[in-house]
Simulated assay, not measured.
Amino acid sequence: MAETMKTLDLETAAAPSLAEIEAAAERLKGRIVETPVTPLTAGVLTPFLPEGAAVLGKLELFQQAGSFKARGALLNLLDFSEDERAHGATAVSAGNHALAVSWAAAQRKVPAKVVMMQSADPVRVAGCKALGAEVVLADDIHGAFAEVDRIVETEGRRFVHPFENPLTVLGTATCGRECALQMPDLDAMVIPVGGGGLIAGMARAIKLLQPQCRIIGVEPTGADSLSRSFAAGSPQSLERVDTIADSLGAPKALPYSFAVARDHVDEVVLIEDAEMLRTMALVYDAMKLALEPAGAAATAAVMGPLRETLAGKRVGVIFCGSTIGEARFAELVAKGRAL
């Protein structure tokens, strides 16, 4: 991937300080949604949750553009110079980041051109277009990054990276800050992992405000780049991504987000696609929340590999997004109910 960001040594860039996170939260105030938290107490869910645990859900699916991504996208767009605003923004994404950049660009009256995969949910593509962005479709993730590099080179647009960017991580840190303030005295916070931007920022903020809280990442077995990177001690790439959770299907870990996550994450667990499908169905039946697979990942881990470990604990999970078409959601929930 060519260098398409402002000149910055991401290998040595520092994690955001608490003062920087507070300043970012203030800058975003009134522009993004301070999403609520709700206890997972519905009787349909109770038999599947850790015995005696108090589980709290951060409803980030109610965020602007349908996911946590709006926070980092807007911080990036707020950082554009006048010249950069004139040239426009570009991004590459399976969907959520493209929607967030399209939304943030519309807020800032900046032209946006987003690159998405041919396999992207049509609802996400339509959403970007409705927000005024131009959409370019690529055959796969590698072709998408090549196309976004071409756009930067030929059109002079500023690239907003989906996770490997201090402003993007600072945005997710504002979500972690909210969690720490809304959910005091947590024993553990469980966070899904794609490229690592969400868990890096959230973990940093939560550890600064609740240092005793254990941070646990969740990856699909078919997209385990952070687990492999932790084991190797350096960012690793995947030869193949195979998961129903396209929002968690990043093909590699990268230096900055990896370093911040490495320093603040206590553990990463793996889940199967079937666990996300089952959880999508359970959460919809219990709470009428229409989660995409990635949005169900943290709760799936609490119901699965973490169930015994978290018994009797006070636990936070995040419902990180819900950008999924009605037909696709119905199809996946039906599969989940059959499990």
Rank of each mutant, 00 (worst) to 15 (best):
Q64V: 02
A54T: 15
M116E: 08
A100Q: 13
E82W: 07
A100I: 10
K113M: 07
A89H: 03
R71S: 02
S67Q: 14
E84R: 07
A54R: 13
L49N: 05
R108A: 10
R71V: 08
V114A: 05
S102L: 13
G66L: 13
L99M: 14
S93M: 14
L45S: 07
M117D: 02
K109E: 09
A104W: 01
A42D: 06
A106C: 02
L61Y: 14
K58T: 11
G95D: 08
V101L: 06
V55S: 06
A53V: 04
T46P: 00
F48G: 02
S67T: 07
M117Y: 14
E60I: 09
Q63L: 12
A100F: 14
L56G: 04
E82Q: 15
R85S: 06
A65M: 10
H97V: 09
G52V: 10
A112P: 04
G52W: 11
K113I: 02
L77H: 01
V44S: 07
V92M: 11
G88D: 03
K113N: 03
E82T: 05
R85G: 00
A100C: 10
N76V: 00
G88R: 07
A91F: 01
V114P: 01
F48V: 03
A54V: 06
A94S: 15
A98I: 12
S93K: 04
W103I: 00
L49Q: 06
A53H: 09
G43I: 12
R108T: 11
A112E: 00
K69F: 14
L99P: 03
G57D: 06
V44D: 01
A106P: 05
A73G: 01
